[in-house]
């Protein structure tokens, strides 16, 4: 369900387009004589992307996310192939929950901008975010995030971020030092920032945390004063740094990084050492193995989370994220040491 292209992408035109869209859905409903469509919106989710696919992947992810997080989705595709400077179209993403007769529909706005118009996107967005609801910005505009970004690209990014309650980036494959610096600058400005590399750590964090939940465990977490992180690639990436930050923040444990030879980028092993026990967490293929020198060993299935799954998790944390805050601060300290 989509309406025709709106050009130029003016807030009022877009809102009119949305109005028309809902009127047409309501007419369908009238013909059927019963309520068939439920309009759903709990936040505005803005995705800016300069992927060469013109925002296709981002749109797909948004439609997946709608089921758990109904929102007004706004995809901004920045592409040199855009026909006009800034154009928009509106559509509804609908799905029928299992066993229900009524469809749930969320509205989606697609804005296509030529790179030179990226700085003008902010003023359009101000008028079209859903009133009084959180605004989450997922930035996939790599050129604007790059240390080489032009002033205009940065200004465009700043304009969108200023509307957002939370900004999400993905530091996978990025130079961790530069990326953490950037995030740190944003955080100092009071922005709430999330990184999908931190979200990728959840499948590691949960079983590790659970080990120390056992009230019968003799050696408590505070006794593990050494943390060793084995990572792929030459330098530890953001994932490895966050893992180190998370585990060493509570008691300022010593951290060392080692390179897992011949392995892909990312996190491969976490080792915790106390005076009398060593716990290893190792990822091999699609399983994660826990081994402890006290004889315990356990195997967990491990599946690389899809971006959809990572975003679903991240969108459910709208307020402050204390665990990330402390892990991030400590990761920065480790970088500076």
């Amino acid at each position: 369900m989509s309406t025709s292209v709106i050009f130029p992408a003016q807030p009022e035109q877009i809102l009119k387009g949305l109005g028309k869209l809902w009127t047409s859905l309501a007419q369908e409903e009238k013909q059927q004589g019963k309520p068939t469509v439920l309009r759903a919106c709990a936040m505005t989710l803005i995705v800016a992307t300069d992927d060469p696919d013109g925002g296709y992947a981002a749109s797909q992810t948004i439609s997946e996310l709608m089921r758990e997080h109904p929102s007004r989705g706004i995809v901004i595709a920045v592409s040199p192939e855009a026909e006009h400077g800034l154009e928009a179209r509106v559509l509804a993403q609908c799905w029928k929950p299992f066993g229900k007769a009524q469809q749930i529909c969320c509205e989606q706005i697609e804005i296509i901008a030529r790179p030179e118009n990226w700085p003008n996107v902010g003023p359009t967005l101000i008028g079209i975010v859903a009133a009084d609801l959180p605004v989450v910005f997922w930035c996939r505009h790599n050129a604007a995030l790059s240390p080489l970004a032009s002033r205009k690209q940065k200004a465009g990014l700043e304009a969108v971020m200023s509307l957002a309650t939370k900004t999400i980036v993905d530091s996978k494959g990025e130079d961790a030092e530069l990326r953490l610096d950037l995030l740190s600058t944003w955080r100092k400005l009071g922005r709430t920032v999330a990184d999908l590399e931190w979200t990728r750590l959840t499948p590691w964090r949960e079983p590790i945390a659970n080990i120390f939940d056992n009230p019968c465990r003799e050696i408590k977490f505070s006794s593990f004063r050494k943390v060793e992180i084995a990572h792929g690639g030459e330098k530890p990436g953001a994932l490895a740094l966050y893992a180190a930050g998370w585990l060493s923040a509570p008691h300022q444990a010593d951290v060392s990084f080692t390179q897992a030879q011949g392995k892909d980028d990312g996190l491969h092993r976490i080792t915790l050492r106390s005076d009398s026990e060593q716990i290893d967490f190792e990822r091999t293929g699609d399983c994660m193995i826990l081994r402890s020198t006290n004889g315990r060993s356990r195997r967990y299935t491990y599946k690389e989370a899809s971006v959809d799954a990572l975003m679903t998790e991240e969108l459910s944390v709208v307020g402050p994220d204390a665990a990330f805050d402390s892990a991030f601060a400590r990761a920065q300290e480790l970088l500076n040491d």
């Binding site: 959840t202 964090r205 949960e206 590790i208 945390a209 120390f212 939940d213 408590k220 977490f221 505070s222 998370w246 585990l247 509570p250 998790e313 944390v317 994220d321 204390a322 665990a323």
Partner: peptide, 11 residues
């Protein structure tokens, strides 16, 4: 000892 690794926001 309180387990500082637990994260009710996520787990």
């Amino acid at each position: 000892e309180v387990n500082p690794l637990q994260d009710p926001l996520r787990f």
